[in-house]
Simulated scan of single mutants.
Amino acid sequence: MNATLRKFGTPAALALSLSLSGGAALAAAEDVVIEDVEFSFEGPFGSFDPLQLQRGLKVYTEVCSACHGMKYVPIRTLGDEGGPQLPEDQVRAYAEQYEVFDEEIDDYRAAKPSDHFPESMLENAPDLSLMAKKRAGFHGPYGTGINQFLKGMGGPEYIYSLMTGYHETPECAPDDFPGSYNAAFGAGGFPEECKDEEGHHTVPGSWINMAQPIYDDSVEFDDGSPADLESASKDVAAFLTWTAEPKLMARKYAGLTGVLFLTVLSVLLYLTNKRIWAPIKGKKKD
């Protein structure tokens, strides 16, 4: 069945198109400001916080989905273990916010959990399904290095820093320069007035085509959690990490199981080797 999904009652696009996945490469590490944020899912024993993912889902639904889609994410996964873990009735109710054009009936119908999130209706607004994997927040020599070894790729940190990286336009920039100044975005436009004699940037970041999407109290969380800019940005960054890595916890458990198995196997091989060679090594030469 070929079905086209669209947002039911989608509001008008909030802002200019997002350059989040623009073709230009990100600027060097010293030209952008990426904050190292602590997330619950980091480290070998970390895991997603279902309540945080639920809050992030709300931020995405009420703010981000006006411009951006997640066409690779099935709605039914909102109830999966390790994810937001919504009850089945809530997953079904959430799906019904959208409608699907069903070619079999040649008409629109309410979406089901088996359908995917809608894709963006804007050509220049990138899909957010895999954005946390696509973007590397931390850089070192040749694009890798010690920062990524210690802190990871930094995809969620990049999203968080981008959401909180909007600042007042630097004094060096002309008033009519297009876009919004963002200290975490390094692939946008940059005025010549903000470069020194050697062409180096005098301020971090660049000008992005997307206006600031999240502000303090942009959403209201049902559990009374803080909805300031930093908290909401962290929640949506965690949610987009889950959409990009929905099996992250399963992979961690599999890796831990593998390490334990190899450890036990190594001990058994050592004891076996010692037992086999003990009689031979114990013989004295005549």
Results as ranks from 00 to 15, higher is better:
residue 200 H to E: 15
residue 242 W to I: 00
residue 118 P to H: 08
residue 67 C to T: 05
residue 255 G to S: 12
residue 62 E to T: 04
residue 260 L to D: 03
residue 8 F to V: 06
residue 123 E to Q: 12
residue 34 I to Y: 02
residue 160 Y to M: 02
residue 274 K to G: 10
residue 129 S to T: 09
residue 149 F to K: 14
residue 33 V to T: 12
residue 104 E to H: 10
residue 214 I to A: 03
residue 94 Y to P: 03
residue 121 M to P: 10
residue 91 V to R: 05
residue 5 L to A: 12
residue 17 S to A: 12
residue 159 I to D: 02
residue 26 L to K: 05
residue 185 F to R: 00
residue 149 F to S: 15
residue 65 S to E: 11
residue 144 T to M: 15
residue 268 L to C: 11
residue 114 S to P: 08
residue 21 S to H: 06
residue 139 H to I: 09
residue 17 S to Y: 08
residue 29 A to H: 11
residue 175 D to L: 13
residue 194 C to S: 07
residue 177 F to R: 03
residue 88 E to F: 06
residue 92 R to M: 12
residue 24 A to R: 13
residue 187 A to F: 00
residue 273 N to C: 09
residue 235 D to Q: 05
residue 190 F to D: 02
residue 203 V to M: 12
residue 278 A to Y: 09
residue 266 S to Y: 04
residue 35 E to F: 00
residue 265 L to E: 14
residue 46 G to A: 05
residue 146 I to T: 15
residue 286 D to L: 15
residue 161 S to D: 04
residue 109 R to F: 07
residue 202 T to A: 08
residue 16 L to E: 15
residue 165 G to K: 03
residue 193 E to Q: 12
residue 179 G to N: 06
residue 144 T to Q: 13
residue 260 L to P: 01
residue 30 E to Y: 12
residue 251 R to F: 09
residue 110 A to K: 14
residue 68 H to V: 04
residue 88 E to R: 06
residue 168 E to C: 06
residue 77 T to Q: 14
